[in-house]
Each structure stands twice: as structure tokens, then as C-alpha cells.
């Protein structure tokens, strides 16, 4: 099997999946608009309202982009929540409000994410440890190191860095633009490059990819590094938005499970090899619309959980039920 046939196979599959993101986006829009009209808050559909809605997608969207890569190669990353906390805390600790430290702090965080990604990827790809256990463990280790190191948060990011999270050129918040740009890059990598085609091949059929001469381990490793980088950018964004990181910011945001949920809702198969970033963006938009709509309706906090659980299941079931064969 040549690499070319693999990539063309992937394109066909990608085509068939196109409706899932669109369906999810339509659902999200429907829910949001209905909520706004039903509660008489039409101004939530204005530009400010919508940019507020998009703002809600940023943190989870950034994590989700990275998580998409991990899931596409048939792996998964549960350590993202702990990494987000670590990055956010590290960034505010290193900056201490000093603009001169912005670049070094960002670099340090990226290096940390790289290391975590390599470790995750190494445990999964080279050692063969199940990704759930491997990344659960690295997450525990990070969380522990973090709690041991940072018992209180005197640190804060530089005001100039914080401003980045609150700027809105042409009415669109800068973080939303960041998410859009990174999403385009991720889409380009997956859809238009050899590397992307190989990722799909590795996720869809690792044995076949191996026979075709691909170094499967390297792709799994790379996917984990990208997942960690996604979490890193999310952590930096949160640090900027919140002025300083707290060691529980990732855990309280449930970014690990929620990022997996949005990726799967967006049509990416947990078994790998199928899906893409467009679906992930649709998934995160659905979550954000739900959040905003629950707010408009004033849904009780516990009932929100119930509804969210039901919607996660329903959203995935809507198209999963068409699958042939068995799912576990």
C-alpha cells in the first residue's frame, strides 16, 4: 500500500463526515437563538452578545484542537487539565507582572508542554502503556508537583500580557482570533499536508501504516506533543484572562473530559483515523451555546449537569447509531 492511496482514502472519509460538524453547528445556533428569543434577550444575538458567546469557546477550543490530534491517532490525553494549571501558574510565577518576562515565560511554558508531550507520547507509543493510564498518571504527577510547589499565588502576569486577553480589534476578541488562526493552521496541517495524511493513516489502521513504511511511534509522539501544546496555549490564555493562574484552574474547568467530549461530539472517532478540527470547533460551540442558553433560561446548577449529560449522549448518538459494527 502506498502512502498516496492512504491519503486519498482519508479524503473520501473526510468528505462523508462533513455533515456532522454542520449539524452540530446548526444545533448550537438553534439552541442559542431559541434561548435568546424565548427569554426576550434579543440583544444576546447582537455583535457584543455573539462575541461574548465566542469568548466562551476559547479555552476549551484551544485544548480541543490539540486533543483532536491525540484522538485522531487513536490515543487520548487526560493530562491536559493538569498541564493547563501548571502552565497558567508557571506563566504568572515567571512574569511577576514584568513585561520583559513575557517572552521568556511563554518559551518556558512551551518547553514544559513539549516535555510533557514527549513523555506522554513516549509512554504511549514507545513503552506501549495504555494512553488513559499513561496520561492519567502524568496528570497526577504534574498536579502533585504543582501543589507541592505552589501553595499560594503571589504571581501575576504582566499587564501587557493580560491586555491581550481583553483586546477586541473590530469587535472580535483577540483570543477568538487566536483560536481561529490556530484552528486554520490545524485544519491545514491535517487536510493539506503529508504529515496530516499520515496521522489519519496511523490512526485509522496502525498495522497498515506500519506496513506502508510509516514510523507509527513518531506520529503518536507528535500527536501527543501537539495535544500538550494545545493545553499550553489554553493555559497561557487563561493566565492572561485571569491575571494569574491557580493550581486547580484546569481541574475545575474539567478540561480533560470536556475536551474529549467536544472532539467526539464533533464526529472524530475515538478509535482514531476519522474526523477533524472543524468538528471539534462545532463541538465547543455547542457547549458554549448550552452554557449561554442555560444562563438565559436561569437553569438551576444541578439541572444543568443533568441536561449536559443527556445532550452529550444524544449528540454523539445521533450519528454514531448509523455506524455498522460494534462499539465499546
Amino acid at each position: 500500500m502506498s502512502v498516496d492511496t492512504l491519503s486519498s482514502g482519508r479524503t473520501r472519509r473526510g468528505f462523508r463526515d462533513l455533515p456532522v460538524p454542520l449539524v452540530v453547528i446548526a444545533l448550537a445556533a438553534f439552541i442559542y437563538v431559541t434561548a435568546a428569543l424565548a427569554t426576550g434577550q434579543a440583544n444576546q444575538i447582537s455583535l457584543t452578545g455573539l462575541s461574548g458567546l465566542l469568548q466562551r469557546t476559547v479555552a476549551l477550543g484551544l485544548v480541543g484542537l490539540g486533543q483532536t490530534f491525540a484522538i485522531l491517532v487513536g490515543s487520548i490525553d487526560l493530562s491536559v487539565a493538569a498541564l493547563i494549571s501548571t502552565v497558567a501558574v508557571l506563566a504568572s510565577y515567571l512574569m511577576q507582572g514584568d513585561a520583559g518576562m513575557i517572552v521568556p515565560a511563554i518559551l518556558a511554558c512551551l518547553v514544559l508542554a513539549l516535555v510533557v508531550g514527549v513523555i506522554n507520547g513516549g509512554l504511549v507509543a514507545c513503552w506501549g502503556i495504555n494512553p488513559l493510564i499513561a496520561t492519567l498518571s502524568t496528570g497526577l504527577i504534574l498536579q502533585g508537583a504543582l501543589a507541592a510547589g505552589f501553595t499560594y499565588l503571589g504571581g501575576r502576569v504582566a499587564p501587557e500580557f493580560q491586555a491581550l486577553a481583553y483586546q477586541a480589534p473590530f469587535g472580535v476578541p483577540l483570543p477568538v482570533l487566536l483560536l481561529a488562526v490556530l484552528a486554520i493552521v490545524a485544519w491545514f496541517v491535517l487536510a493539506k499536508t503529508r504529515f496530516g495524511a499520515h496521522l489519519y493513516a496511523v490512526g485509522g489502521n496502525p498495522d497498515g501504516a506500519k506496513l506502508a513504511g510509516l514510523r507509527v511511534e513518531r506520529f503518536v509522539l507528535a500527536a501527543h506533543v501537539i495535544a500538550s501544546l494545545g493545553a499550553c496555549v489554553a493555559g497561557l490564555y487563561l493566565a492572561a484572562r485571569l491575571q494569574s493562574g491557580t493550581p486547580w484552574i484546569g481541574r475545575d474547568g474539567v478540561y480533560d473530559l470536556e475536551s474529549i467530549a467536544i472532539v467526539v461530539i464533533g464526529g472524530t472517532a475515538l478509535s482514531g483515523g476519522k474526523g477533524g478540527v472543524l468538528g471539534t470547533l462545532a463541538g465547543v460551540l455547542l457547549f458554549a451555546s448550552l452554557d449561554a442558553s442555560f444562563n438565559m433560561f436561569g437553569v438551576d446548577a444541578f439541572l444543568k449537569q443533568v441536561l449536559r449529560g443527556a445532550i452529550v449522549i444524544a449528540a454523539v448518538a445521533v450519528y454514531a447509531v448509523r455506524n455498522k459494527g460494534h462499539v465499546a
Binding site: 443533568v306 441536561l307 449529560g309 443527556a310 454523539v316 455506524n323 462499539v327
Partner: peptide, 24 residues
């Protein structure tokens, strides 16, 4: 088994649902 939702997502959903129900 019937809706073909991967169990990790299905039980994540019921986790939220059951927990929410218990608290509500």
C-alpha cells in the same frame, strides 16, 4: 450497544446526569 456511543462518552454522560440528578 444500541446507540453505538463509545462507552467512555456514554458513561461520561450518565456520570454528569446521575450526579446532577442526585444533587438536584
Amino acid at each position: 450497544a444500541f446507540l453505538k456511543v463509545p462507552s467512555i462518552i456514554a458513561t461520561l454522560g450518565t456520570m454528569l446526569l446521575v450526579n446532577g440528578l442526585a444533587l438536584a
